[in-house]
Amino acid sequence: MGILCLGVTMIKTNDYILTTQNLSKSFKGFVAVNNVNLKILRGNIHALIGPNGAGKTTCFNLLTKFLDPSEGSIYFNNTDITKQKPAEIARRGIVRSFQISAVFPHLSVLENVRIALQSKQKTNFYFWRSEKTLKELNQKALELLHLVELETYHNQLAIELPYGRKRALEIATTLALEPELMLLDEPTQGMGHEDVDHVMKLIKSVSTGRTILMVEHNMKVVSGISDCITVLSRGSVLAEGDYQSISSNPEVMSAYMGTQATESK
């Protein structure tokens, strides 16, 4: 990993928000993630790319503790979070999205965002309280919806939204938690061109003041907004650096294209 990823601002070169040490996960002998050492600089948009089956989503699941790592440890703001539960991780400020769209389909668009705002309330177990007490959160929810241009749809059920808007709603919901670190799993997957541009701009605009780690296949998005790229292949880190160095790296080319090295045998 010759080239270091430096944040655009370059305040401190070693201010890492999230690091992993020898992170590994094996499923009954199959090693999905192998000795991964990630270092994510605060304030960066960090892209995780790699061919299918490279272990990107498994990596995400490990970082958010939806899976337990077989070995290795995870540090968030220099605190060891390897042993914590997914909900605790979320409350610490690491919030993820999912590969397939993860809205609450039969709740309204407004309620989708509000449920995220609500998670910080202390009244969540108060089954005797009226839900009218949640109205105070509506204003904030509408502001977040405004950010992703969805406030006109706030009364609709989330299931009625077209795909691109569902993904936007997801981002608004994630933002409601004011996460320090956002993990986006393929935010533009399955989208048309206009939607991709839209979501790309959206990610860029919400990245101010926070760090983003995203799995992404769309090279336009990766080259367009990411400050640093880590390439995973067969569970291990193959290369790391900015877009320039990654795109000219012969190993990366062969992993993606399957040139001589992999094809001949």
Partner: peptide, 27 residues
């Protein structure tokens, strides 16, 4: 009232998408 309470809202969210509810910090 339970259904229409802050608690009920969380329940509905869990019913709709459990892993998303977890990722929003709900136990």
């Amino acid at each position: 009232r339970t259904i229409h309470s802050p608690f009920g809202q969380v329940l509905k969210a869990i019913r709709e998408n459990e892993s998303r509810a977890i990722s929003l910090g709900y136990d």
